[in-house]
């Protein structure tokens, strides 16, 4: 491959198109090789390991077929983990994104200090998940800042065992996740809003549309592409949830805050059931893949279409 591609790369008047493709593929090769080596090969390996009962050290010779998958799907712990992932997705779409959108619309107006507000709201996103987890773990300890905050406002009755109550822990975690990520979605949507020419909205207002009507029928549709990307990132993020929850609860108490990624890590690296852990990894991969493909196919399609056709033309 090496010699032929190098020689055929010499420019000749009649061979413009092949030369172009050779160059492109040559430039793509390193990235492709890395992608193959570090993404696709491990995916295939995980799928392979998932068919074995294996502790990661012994020889890979105890073939169990799909037993690991059956165990996973029959396990209450893992089912809780899956439903927790989807709970976060639903809550994010229902609460976090609308909240970010309203903030973005607000901060898109001109007023003094809006840059400061933008920075303040974006700031939590800059923190790493681990640091966020540690900080909130401290704040949420009994009688710590959050509890005394509630008490001093006379709301002592609302105090919960924030991270210790299996029935409440996911709510606590969702609030913290939202605190960390609303700023990111806000900035994304703000950028989208700034890409919408003011004249269109002004024209609608002149034509007699109310503020809400202008937002609903002009701004929102034009913000569509950004919104769809924001929703997509939020969904994928919720599926992969790990760091912060690991730091704060390690999936506890009693597995109430397990996510698929946490269940996978526990099985693989705590219990050293690498085969079972790989099966969980494959299930997580399939969830993410199906969700991503379906979303691309049915929702993002109109946004991507333009780009692809433009490339061919």
């Amino acid at each position: 491959m090496s010699a032929t591609s190098a020689t055929s790369a010499r420019p000749r008047a009649g061979f413009k198109v092949p030369t172009k493709w050779v160059t492109i593929s040559l430039f793509l090769l390193p990235a492709l090789a890395l992608y193959l080596l570090f993404v696709l090969v491990p995916v295939v390996q995980a799928a392979h390991y998932s068919l074995y009962k294996w502790n990661g050290l012994q020889p890979l010779d105890n073939f169990v077929g799909l037993k690991n998958y059956a165990t996973a799907l029959g396990s209450d712990t893992f089912r809780t983990a899956v439903s927790n992932n989807f709970l976060i997705i639903v809550l994010s779409l229902a609460i976090q994104i609308p909240f970010s959108l309203s903030l973005a619309v607000l901060l898109n107006r001109r007023f003094t200090g809006r840059t400061i507000f933008r920075v303040i709201f974006f700031l939590p996103y800059v923190l790493s998940e681990a640091i966020t987890g540690v900080v909130f773990s401290l704040l949420l300890r009994p009688h710590a800042l959050i509890d005394s905050g509630f008490s001093s406002m006379g709301l002592g009755g609302l105090i919960q065992d924030w991270l210790g109550d299996p029935g409440f822990v996911m709510i606590t975690l969702f609030v913290i996740i939202s605190w960390k990520y609303f700023g990111f979605h806000m900035i994304l949507l703000l950028a989208g809003l700034q890409g919408i020419p003011r004249e269109i909205e002004e024209a609608a207002l002149i034509d007699g549309a109310g503020r809400w009507q202008a937002f609903r029928h002009i701004t929102l549709p034009l913000l569509g592409p950004t919104l769809r990307v924001s929703v997509f990132l939020s969904m994928i993020g919720a599926l992969q949830l790990f760091d912060m929850i690991w730091v704060m609860t390690r999936g506890g108490p009693l597995g109430a805050s397990n996510t698929m990624a946490i269940a996978m890590f526990k099985a693989g690296f705590q219990s050293q059931q690498m085969g079972y852990g790989s099966a969980l990894a494959v299930i997580l991969f399939l969830f993410a893949l199906v969700l991503a493909l379906a979303y691309q196919r049915f929702v993002l399609r109109r946004d991507v279409e333009g780009a692809v056709t433009a490339f061919n033309g």
Partner: peptide, 28 residues
């Protein structure tokens, strides 16, 4: 172009050879 091509090939070659030397975890 030739240089660019050669450089890329070198990269690929080194990537391949290093992958051969230190395999991804394959405790098989």
């Amino acid at each position: 172009r030739f240089l660019a091509g050669a450089a890329i090939l070198a990269l690929v070659a080194s990537a391949c050879s290093s992958s051969g030397a230190s395999p991804t975890p394959a405790p098989v």
